[in-house]
Structures are given as structure tokens and as C-alpha cells.
Computed example of a mutant assay.
Amino acid sequence: MTDQAQHLRTQLLNELTAVGVLRTDEWKAAAGAVARHDFLRGGFFRNAGGAAWEPVLQDDPGWLEACYRDESLVTQIAGTILPQDIRGQILREPTSSSTLPSLVLRMLEDLQVKPGMHVLEIGTGTGYSTAVLATRLGDDLVTSIEYDSDVAGRAGAALWEQGIHPTLVTGDGLLGHAEGGPYDRIIATCGIKTVPAAWMEQTQPGGLILATIGGWLHASELARLTVHEDGTASGPLLGGQVSFMLARPQSPPPLGLLPDLGAGTERQTGIGADVLDDWTARFITQFAVPNAQRLMLTRDGRNEHVLVDVVTGSWAAVYQDSGQWIARQDGPDLLWDTVEEHLDRWHAAGKPSVEKGTVTVTDQGQTLTW
């Protein structure tokens, strides 16, 4: 490693220690032994304004300095496109990235790992967090699974070049990796809509699952769940509005043909659609209507906030009329009634912060209580 890279890495870790992200000497030492730039030699994309992205390659000015800023760096666009594939700009969605170091290290601290524990990582990505894990615990105690075979191949090459040899698996991380279990800890570096049953089955009773629970309304929080003897799991939300790209198999499907939004029954509602502008309220709404997607439509000269359940076909349209919020809904489930019920319980509890919430996962689904 160059002196400049070593200086930049030390400076970054000292900054993260000063703000309380790095809380233990063990994780600081592990992170200090791993060069993040070695996992970004293929370059990355930087935002060029709005939805535009432009490549930054290893030989470009500022590449090394960017590798050691506390920023997420996009490494893949649209599922296949790499920085070296582009000249100029591209207007597509990011699909893989190197997570900002402060979040990687915060999550490793929050995982509460002890020496000798076996860890399954969901989402190898560039391999940086895998390297830090393996440096701390040892190669034989770390298994990492990556959905994208090309991403997995690049991560494996970067790890092996540094002499780090954890167990690497290419496959659907939502299924875990039963052959390597049971695990003491599972950590997910992708967002999930629901906690997979496979993860609970593959975790030792008393073990922990650390994952970002989110959804199609784009609000998410980090949860640390303890797996119980009866196969259920529960635990607190840790706060911070942590956000990851959703696991690809849980990405929202296309809405397709919309239902007849002029049908249904209308009523006044005490909770307007503007509540969905609040992160916590939107997070709670995802537990209420987990299969709903949100869109804005203009009908009859007014803006309507629409929720559509892509599984049942139920829908709700909420709009303002003379200062009063009106909800129109139809389908087997009354979506806005369900949203109101969950938000009313939150209001009755005094609108506590997410850190006061507890997530419980059973074979019947997952719930959020205060």
C-alpha cells in the first residue's frame, strides 16, 4: 500500500473513532488491516446530477481520495454496467455499491460478535466488509453469499489477492446457506422487505440477525433480532434511517395495468396522505400494507396519492377537498383503513421514535410494536 493510501485510511478510521462509529479496538484494528481501495480498482460511478452517473476510474484524479471518504460508491449500474463500460454519463439505476465505511463498521459493531463465532454475511458486494469480518474472526468462521455472479467473481478475486479466503457462495442470499450453518450471527448488507424464514432456521437459538428492514415505500431501519428456541425472532430497531438497495428477489414488481381508480367507496379521513412524507410514519405504513406501492396521479384536476397492493389488487386513493382529506378505496382489503389503524396506535403511544420499536418475526409474518 502506498504511503498516501495508508495515511488516508488512518485518517478515516480516526475520524470514525472520534464520532463514535468505531467503538472497540478490535474492529478498528481489523478495519486498519484492510485497504478499501483494493476493492475498488475497477472504479466507481459518481453522481453527475439528478439520475445521471459518470465513471471514475483508477487512473483518474481523485480516485484514491474518494476511496477513503465516508461515502457509498456505486460500482454497478442497471445490473450489468461497470465504470469501464461508460464514456460520459448514464441515466440508469444503481444496482451494486461499496457501502460507506461508517455504516459498514457501525453494523459490525452492532452485530456484537465475539471470537469463535460463525458469521453468515448476506451480500458480498465488493468484498470490503467480508475482508474486515474475516480479518477479525478468521477465514474459517466467515461465509458470504452474493446474488450476482459477476459481482461475486470480482469480490473473490479482490479477497484472494489480499490473501483472505472466507467461504464464498454465489446464490440467493434470502435462502441463506444451510450447508455452512448453524450460524451465531447473520448480517445483511442489502435491504430486505421481510425477514426470511431460512435465516431464522440457520441461526443458533440465542444468535442474532442484523438486517435493514425496508420496503416499497422507501423507508427502512436497522433491526437486531434475537432468534428464540421456538423458531421466532424479535428485537429492537437501532435507528439511523439506514438504507440499502433491496435484495433483488424482493424488489417491487412492475405495477402493470392500474385498477379502476374511479370506483370504490369514499369517506373522510383524519390521517392525510401527507403523513407519508414522514420517514417513521412511512416505515410503519410498510408494516401495515407490506405489498403496497405508492404513486401520484392527477385526476379530475386534483392530485391523488395512491397505494396499490400488487398481490391482492386492493387500492386506496387519498386526496384533499376543501381542506379535508378524503380516502377512496376498493378491493378485498381496505388499505387506508389498515394504514389508519397502525398509525393510530403509534399516535396513541405518543409517536415514539423508531428506537422504541420492537420487530417480531414468526411464521405468520412480521409485526412492529411499541
Rank of each mutant, 00 (worst) to 15 (best):
T10F: 05
Q11D: 14
T17L: 05
R23Y: 09
V34F: 03
V34K: 02
R36M: 08
H37D: 15
D38W: 02
G49C: 02
V56Q: 03
V56T: 13
D59E: 14
L64T: 11
E65A: 11
E65T: 02
A66Q: 13
I77Q: 13
I77E: 04
G79C: 01
I81M: 05
R87G: 14
L91Y: 07
R92C: 10
T99K: 07
E109Y: 03
D110A: 14
I122T: 10
L133Y: 11
A134L: 05
G138L: 07
L141V: 07
D148C: 02
D150L: 12
V151L: 10
G153F: 02
A155D: 03
A155C: 08
G156P: 01
G163F: 03
I164R: 00
H165K: 11
E179Y: 04
G180L: 07
Y183M: 06
V195R: 04
M200S: 06
I209C: 05
S220C: 08
L222T: 06
G231N: 13
G235E: 08
G235C: 09
P236L: 14
G239Q: 09
G256T: 10
A273N: 10
F283S: 04
F283D: 03
P290T: 03
T298W: 01
H305L: 01
H305A: 12
V306Q: 06
V306N: 13
T312L: 00
S314V: 00
W315T: 02
A316W: 06
A317R: 09
D321H: 12
R328A: 00
E340D: 12
T369V: 03
